[in-house]
Amino acid sequence: MDLKLDHRTEDRLTIVEVEGEIDVYTAPRLRELLIDLVNKGNFHLLVNMEKVDFLDSTGLGVLVGGLKRVRAHDGSLELVCTQERILKIFRITGLTKVFGIYASVDEAKEAHGRDK
């Protein structure tokens, strides 16, 4: 399955909807989107990965790259993910300590609101 990307802004939070496979072939598109969003002043990103079927280290690298970019503007990049097979790769690489990972968009929005 190819990669589908969409995004919307709610309050100060930009929600990036990702669907499909994030791998060495498709990850550049996600990288371009994150860079574009940051360049346009969106520094608080929430990446919804609930419809992601596959994620590899290329995708992890793109997310880490995005995190570095938003942090340079005192921003944030957090994730929504409950799929065990996706969470596993975050655990293997220790990135569960780097990203805020939430069970739903609403839960993430609530946490983001508290932090504002």
């Binding site: 280290s57 690298g61 790259g65």
Partner: peptide, 17 residues
């Protein structure tokens, strides 16, 4: 590294799997 931001991550993932 297949990931410019994190070289060697791919091998680390394989080792974990």
């Amino acid at each position: 590294g297949i990931v410019p931001e994190m070289p060697g991550l791919g091998i680390a993932v394989i080792a974990g799997l």
